[in-house]
């Protein structure tokens, strides 16, 4: 999974962190950990989200996935609203908690073991079914729309993953640029501190 992760092997966005404003720096650095104990997620739920996140973002690095789980816990324990919720879908706390339980039971029914004990291919197959709303239904899924459950988890996982500075470095994203801004914005121009491609690449 890890080969050819980046076109910018020598770039680290954090090298520029002293150039960022203090408020932004504080927010971004916190994503490197350490993280406080989960407030909402139980241990088994956190482990399941960790496993699901590996599939959703196609990555298995612990330092990033730990932050992903922390972000999910933060989101689910926050009193903030969820912008929109489809009619017939329960609020996110219930959606995720019951959805995870139903997913675990689905794994047992389909493969004879809980989600964390089945192999990666089987896990993927279950998630793929859920994403399309085509997984086997049972009483567990009463009032838990599979597609909405998967979408909620996947969206929050991606929210965290693409906010991690290691991922910013890999995709060659310049990141925060205040107070200095971007000076060379035209086609083919880069500021001296921005990501440069590997010279060998065409």
């Amino acid at each position: 999974m890890q080969e050819n992760r980046t076109r910018y092997p020598s770039y680290d966005v954090l090298n520029e962190k002293d150039q960022w404003d203090e408020h932004t720096r504080e927010i971004v650095i916190k994503r490197l950990g350490p993280f406080p104990k989960n407030k909402f997620l139980k241990e088994h739920e956190a482990e399941m989200i960790y496993a699901i996140a590996r599939h959703v973002v196609y990555d298995q690095r612990k330092e990033i996935l730990d932050y992903v789980v922390h972000h999910l816990d933060n989101t689910l324990s926050s009193p903030m609203g969820e912008n929109q919720r489809k009619v017939g879908t329960p609020e996110q706390k219930i959606l995720v908690r019951r959805g995870l339980k139903a997913t675990d039971n689905l794994a047992k029914e389909q493969y004879g073991a809980p989600f964390l004990k089945i192999d990666v291919q089987q896990q993927f197959s279950i998630l793929d079914d859920l994403a399309r709303g085509k997984a086997m239904t049972s009483e567990d899924w009463q009032g838990i729309p599979q597609k909405e459950f998967f979408k909620k988890l996947a969206t929050e996982i991606v929210n965290a993953y693409y906010s991690h500075p290691t991922v910013w470095s890999e995709i060659g994203y310049g990141g925060p640029a205040y107070p200095r801004g971007y000076v060379r914005v035209e086609m083919g121009l880069t500021d001296p501190w921005e990501a440069k491609r590997d010279a060998k690449e065409s």
Binding site: H23, I27, Q84, S163
Partner: peptide, 22 residues
């Protein structure tokens, strides 16, 4: 002091209250 050069934390600028959609 409130704005950051960061997408995730600045999602709070939106009206986040839950609206039901159909």
């Amino acid at each position: 002091t409130d704005f950051a050069s960061d997408e995730l934390s600045m999602q709070s600028l939106a009206w986040n209250d839950t609206r039901l959609v159909a």
